[in-house]
Design a protein around this nucleic acid. Structure first.
Lengths: 168, 168
DNA sequence: ATATAGTTTAGAAAAATTATTAAGAATTAC
DNA sequence: GTAATTCTTAATAATTTTTCTAAACTATAT
């Protein structure tokens, strides 16, 4: 259930690119330095984000990468899907990349217990990540959620202001 | 964000063991056959669940594995933690296995955007998985959640998820 | 004692993740 | 044009994690 380095690096890079949105292009080396990520790896990540239509780039002197979509229109969920694939814990509950299970004893009955649980998990994850825009991700103290209040637990929408209540 | 085979196999095995709860012990070979999982791998999985106190076992003729905790008292989240480790996408938001990030540029400010997002994800995942008992997992059409549904049918003891780590 | 079945450790095999390299192509400045 | 800069692409190396196997060992019941 772990977030890959790839997605982590990608999100860190997007933090920088959101900051520079509508201003300057950032060189991969600048991004790598600012966020302490290996420049070579970052390269492949930025390329993937470019192919996905989130980033634009230009070679040459004033070149570099820039965010070409408004940060309000890109969700963290989208980014992770691009870099890591579907959010769903198992393919048979993915909305964006559904696949039947190959050797599940329940695949005939259409009522697999694991599928049932993981369906809820998938929705819980997507509910959080698809509701988080890059904008909210960047200036992280307000406007965090873009959608109406999440249905997870009866908390108030902004309840997890979480000024870092030290976990554990 | 994927569920490992290990956890999947473990949960499948627990499905069989829940069915046989308070009745018979199941041999690993029986479980492996019923759920189409490699018997050698299953072995190590069952052992881990045993060490964690969820299963008991006995060698010899009428031997095998059996669930030694009431299925009402074991959550799917517990099982996955035992087999796969923390539910949290990154260690710095884990409630059960917190670790500081080693090279995060934000680790000083105590206000890391990634940490903020993943904190919510962690809680969303744990909210689902810790609310799902083995009992609900097994007879999956009713009483799915243990927390939200006040009406329990039958006379099950239900000491309400004693072992599950309470998120928050 | 014997057959049955779990226990334990080590580690092999396979897959996924993480990263590097190097040659190439586009852009700008001059 | 040429040179400097910076992205582009593909191949692949390195590392880690996951998945699985093997074999010797121990416990239980009859």
């Amino acid at each position: 259930m772990r977030l890959s380095r790839k997605s982590e690096y990608g999100l860190r890079a997007l933090l920088e690119l959101t900051k520079a949105y509508d201003q300057v292009a950032l060189r991969r080396s600048d991004i790598a330095a600012a966020q302490h990520v290996p420049v070579g790896f970052l390269e492949t990540i930025l390329l993937e984000l470019k192919r996905a239509g989130i980033l634009g780039s230009r070679p040459g002197v004033q070149g570099g990468y820039r965010l070409i979509k408004p940060p309000e229109d890109v969700s963290v969920g989208q980014v992770i899907r691009i870099l890591d694939g579907p959010l769903a814990p198992i393919p048979c509950v993915s909305q964006t990349a559904y696949q039947t299970c190959r050797d599940c004893p329940y695949s005939r009955t259409r009522d697999c217990p694991i599928q049932n649980v993981m369906f809820d998990v998938r929705n819980a994850i997507a509910g959080v990540l698809d509701g988080y825009t890059l904008r909210a991700f960047y200036d992280r103290n307000r406007n965090r959620r873009v959608r109406k209040s999440p249905k997870r637990r009866g908390n108030s929408p902004l309840s997890s202001t979480q000024g870092t209540s030290d976990p554990q």
